[in-house]
Computed example of a mutant assay.
Amino acid sequence: MPFISPDDGHLTVFNLFETETPAGQEQVLDAMRDIIDNATYPGWISSTLHAGQDRPGTANYIQWTGLEALEARYAGEGFKRKTVPKFNELATSVRLLKTEAEFVQRHPGLDGAPELSPARDDYTVIIVLGVAAENQKELLDTLATPEEWLAEVPGYRSHTYFRGLDGTFLVNYAQWDGKEAYDAFHALPEEQRPRDVRDARARARSLVTSRWANTYHVVHSRSAQG
């Protein structure tokens, strides 16, 4: 199963699809499972499919050896003439976000790198933060710092910051025990957070130009290694 590590050098693509209804979500999931199960693309490492929880939608977390391999896939006639039109028809919104992992933190009680697997029960949160290109590095430096206090937050498992290759966004991919734990953390009053965390959040809010989020659970995964 895939693992998250900034040291692996992988290109990570987040394919984020939104649908109007749960039935529409199931159609996208079925179509995506078929693509994943038949993937043989040069440079493709793994794909992990997520089903939306709070809102209908899907997220496909895809690891590639690098940008060249991904662009070869995007340039293929099958992708341009079949795959893109199909998902534009099934989904109300399609986002293909090219990123690199820059920072990972995991609860100290959990061993190893964060794993993505349908055998796990992670409540996954994906947040996309828009930012002006000239401010992306500052936003990343502000948010991607160790937060030891999270070890005491009930339900916290891990979070990772990914840098958008085009310079206009960051992605936060976080794993929690469940919805109740994450909602409690999200709603935690600012005064109950450490002072340095409050300062960083305030600075980040001044830099962020947009925020998009949804929650998921992993339903399918496959890698090139079987």
Results as ranks from 00 to 15, higher is better:
43 G>L: 08
172 N>R: 12
183 D>G: 06
97 L>P: 03
22 P>F: 11
13 V>F: 06
71 E>L: 05
178 G>W: 13
129 L>C: 10
206 S>M: 12
194 P>N: 11
64 W>D: 05
106 R>C: 00
44 W>Q: 02
196 D>P: 08
153 V>S: 01
194 P>G: 13
24 G>N: 05
130 G>K: 01
112 G>D: 10
75 A>Y: 07
30 D>A: 15
225 Q>H: 13
33 R>W: 04
67 L>V: 05
171 V>I: 15
221 S>H: 06
37 D>F: 10
169 F>N: 04
76 G>P: 02
98 K>I: 03
121 D>T: 14
198 R>G: 09
27 Q>M: 06
59 A>L: 15
170 L>C: 01
163 R>E: 03
184 A>K: 13
198 R>W: 04
86 K>Q: 15
138 E>G: 00
16 L>T: 08
36 I>W: 00
141 D>I: 03
189 P>A: 08
157 R>L: 06
190 E>D: 12
74 Y>T: 08
70 L>W: 07
123 Y>D: 02
31 A>S: 13
104 V>D: 01
219 V>T: 15
196 D>L: 12
119 A>V: 09
218 V>H: 08
67 L>C: 01
59 A>H: 04
87 F>Q: 10
46 S>F: 04
82 K>A: 07
56 P>C: 13
178 G>M: 09
189 P>D: 06
65 T>W: 08
61 Y>Q: 02
83 T>I: 15
64 W>P: 00
90 L>V: 03
203 R>P: 02
181 A>V: 06
215 T>Q: 05
195 R>M: 09
83 T>L: 14
172 N>W: 03
10 H>N: 11
136 Q>S: 11
48 T>I: 09
35 I>K: 06
121 D>P: 08
128 V>H: 09
97 L>Q: 08
165 L>V: 06
100 E>S: 13
79 F>N: 06
72 A>C: 05
167 G>D: 01
133 A>R: 11
149 W>S: 11
174 A>Y: 03
182 Y>N: 12
129 L>T: 04
78 G>A: 12
79 F>G: 03
161 Y>I: 01
9 G>H: 07
63 Q>G: 10
180 E>T: 15
183 D>E: 15
18 E>C: 05
104 V>K: 04
165 L>I: 02
130 G>S: 04
53 Q>M: 09
124 T>N: 05
116 L>P: 01
53 Q>K: 12
